[in-house]
Design a protein around this nucleic acid. Structure first.
Length: 492
DNA sequence: ATAGGGTTAG
């Protein structure tokens, strides 16, 4: 009953039940308390979970491995890794040695918190402590390496797992397919799909969706469409993400009428376009090659029915100071409050790029300013150390990068005029530099370099990192101070 | 009573 009520987050009812229980002469035991802790933790009431932990000890009930495991897990998942690790220490201090379950929890928590080497170390150490990894432990480890893009390590663990006599389950197959796909081994990912079916696992929608996405990204429209159809024939209903994958595939090769049909079938299935759907359509509009395609993209955006379309249609022309545009954007972002930041960033990027390339530069600049102010681009500007700044343009489209750079440099100038202090160094990071794993030229880097040259910004590159433009010292100060046109830079 | 994947966005 406590567990069931906890799942329903009925904490008032739980307390009534516990009082009733004590009144009838039944003392809560460790299992009762553990369920209670888990209930609070899952609902993100960590303080209450800790209260229960203290109460049970006051009542003379000893916490066991499950108690500690639960507390470790809920704290780590809530972002309190330090408290989680402290509970791990306390558990050992209480004479409870970790078991396979405990190790799995800790390994997962460490990995998710960005400490993959520590997670892997523990994974290697656990055997020496007499705890053998089981299927779930392997799945955790494979998934962590996959997330970190250590695909070769992930595949090696997969082989180790099979070598240790474990049969992969649906979760394993799913992760491994993703790994193979991201390595570019699409046929191999398909082979795993076949193996999975042969072992009587039933592929679900996300697995089909993965294959649609992989083939689509590889530019193979026919294959992507084939897997999409395969999913429908398996009696599965596509979700919005999968629809977006196939939609992106059509748009990329300018099959606009097929994109139109897909949007219509989304409507027929009762699937609401997401921010990503609209972002795809808007980007396609920006890249339209002809007046006809442009008009068609406009229709697609209207058919999507996403609120972002009204936002764009109602965008006012920038007045003398762009205040009306800023208010319009600000209202829209407030309305989009609960969307996750990456989605909002994607849309704002597409909007700024679109406006910039349509010649509405003042509007683009104002949209950027509000997006930056509303923390949609938290990594765009950072003070690396005292008066050493980093402008990070690496997740932006060309139009957005150029707009963001112009507005940020103007902001520096304004700050300087107010405070009299000048940054000693500014690094402008465009991406596709030294650590790039993708060959080819970066459009963003090119556009930024052209802009900097045009405005005689005093920059250099260092350590062979061609993707990062550095300005510093007197030349930087002189440029910021004397270039009154910085304010209007974004209009070019 | 405690642990694992879930897609877009480099």
């Amino acid at each position: 009953m406590v567990g069931n009520l906890g799942r329903a987050k009925q904490f008032g009812e739980i307390n009534k039940l516990l009082n009733e229980m004590v009144r009838d002469g039944c003392q809560p035991n460790t299992v009762t308390y553990n369920r209670l802790i888990h209930s609070y933790g899952r609902a993100n009431y960590l303080r209450e979970a800790m209260n229960v932990f203290n109460q049970m000890q006051e009542a003379g009930c000893e916490p066991d491995r499950v108690t500690y495991c639960t507390l470790i897990d809920i704290h780590a998942k809530a972002g309190f890794l330090d408290i989680a690790m402290d509970m791990y220490q306390r558990m050992q201090a209480a004479g409870l040695s970790p078991d396979t379950f405990t190790y799995s929890v800790i390994i997962n928590c460490l990995g998710k918190a960005g400490h993959l080497p520590a997670a892997h170390r523990l994974f290697c150490e656990m055997v020496g402590q007499g705890c053998t990894p089981n299927l779930v432990t392997f799945n955790i480890m494979i998934a962590l390496h996959a997330k970190a893009r250590n695909y070769q390590s992930a595949l090696k663990l997969y082989r180790d797992m099979k070598g240790a006599g474990f049969q992969p389950d649906k979760v394993t197959y799913s992760i491994v397919m993703e790994v193979l796909g991201h390595c570019g081994y699409l046929e191999e990912a398909e082979a795993v799909f076949t193996e999975m079916q042969r072992k009587n696992w039933v592929p679900d929608e996300p697995v089909y969706g993965l294959l649609v996405d992989l083939w689509g990204k590889a530019g193979n429209v026919d294959k992507a469409w084939q897997w999409y159809q395969g999913m429908l024939h398996a009696g599965l209903r596509p979700n919005v993400t999968t629809c977006n994958s196939i939609l992106r595939t059509f748009l990329r090769v300018h099959r606009l009428s097929e994109a139109y049909n897909l949007l219509q079938s989304m409507l027929a299935l009762g699937l609401q376009s997401s921010l990503q759907t609209y972002t795809l359509l808007l980007s396609c509009c920006t890249d339209a090659r002809s007046k006809f395609d442009l008009g068609f993209c406009g229709q697609l955006m209207a058919v999507s029915g996403h609120p972002a379309h009204m936002f764009l249609l109602k965008m006012p022309p920038a007045g003398t100071d762009g205040q009306n545009v800023r208010e319009h954007v600000s209202n829209f972002l407030d309305y989009m409050h609960s969307e996750d930041r990456e989605s909002k960033r994607g849309l704002m990027d597409a909007v700024v790029d679109f406006l910039h390339k349509s010649g509405l530069k003042e509007e683009a600049g104002s949209v950027w300013e509000v997006a930056a102010f509303k923390n949609v681009y938290p990594d765009a500007l950072r003070e690396k150390s005292c008066s050493y700044w980093l402008i990070n343009l690496h997740v932006m489209s060309e139009g957005t990068a150029v707009t963001a750079l112009s507005r940020t440099l103007a902001w520096f100038r304004k700050q300087m005029l107010v405070s009299g202090e000048c940054p000693s160094r500014i690094d402008i990071v465009t991406g596709w530099g030294r650590r790039s794993r993708v060959t080819g030229t970066s459009m963003v880097r090119q556009a930024v370099e052209e802009l900097l040259n045009m405005f005689n910004f005093p920059f250099f590159t260092e350590n062979g990192n061609s993707g990062c433009f550095v300005g510093c010292g007197e030349p930087l100060k002189k440029w910021l101070l004397e270039s009154s046109y910085v304010e209007r830079m974004h209009l070019l």
